[in-house]
């Protein structure tokens, strides 16, 4: 936990400093939370994430839609937990050590997604909006992609939280 926070803080610092230097690019600079799913590097906009929970307790419920593990209590609020890997059918899932949760929200929906590992924060000055498809990402992710960009030696897949959340919402309705 402490390590994680430290890491995030460092990343934040790293992200901030150049920001202050070049005011011009500030508006274009965007921050993402970078995380891993099955070794695929994904990222989600920092603005769509509310918090990161390293420890929590999931209460499972019956009759949940596919990929939803249950609910957990995050600061007095009951929030659903989605095993992103399972939801995207990237693996059969299965119980493993609790992975970190990222609480994401849109106007109508708030949920927590479980990911393999949180890498840290990523600051991107600019990325080519034309790049939409990824050569290596599994096709399961592609409906939720809103962009792909290279960061260092990694290929980062930007997940659109809006698309993801509306899909989650749809599946919740179907399950009902």
């Amino acid at each position: 936990m402490d390590e994680l926070i430290g890491e995030i803080d460092r990343e934040l610092q790293a992200g901030r400093e150049p920001c202050c230097d070049e005011h011009k690019s500030q508006s274009e600079r965007q921050q993402f939370i970078e995380f891993l799913l099955n070794e695929v590097v994904l990222a989600i906009r920092l603005s769509s994430a509310l918090e990161i929970c390293p420890s929590y307790e999931i209460t499972p419920l019956p009759n949940l839609p596919e990929g939803v593990l249950g609910v957990c209590n995050i600061r007095g609020e009951i929030i659903s937990v989605v095993d992103l890997k399972r939801y995207l059918r990237m693996s059969a899932g299965g119980f493993n050590a609790p992975n970190p949760l990222i609480v994401i929200r849109s106007n109508v929906l708030k949920t927590a997604i479980m990911v393999d590992k949180i890498q840290g924060l990523l600051s991107v000055v600019q990325f080519d909006p034309r790049l939409q498809a990824s050569p290596i990402a599994a096709k399961e992710i592609s409906p939720y992609l809103s962009g792909v960009f290279a960061s260092g030696d990694r290929l980062v897949h930007l997940i659109s939280s809006e698309k993801l959340l509306s899909a989650l919402r749809g599946s919740a309705f179907k399950a009902e």
Binding site: L61, P62, N63, I78, I79, S80, V108, L109, A172, E176
Partner: peptide
Amino acid sequence: LGSHLASVK
């Protein structure tokens, strides 16, 4: 149950 799981059977 939160905005996501509006109704769980």
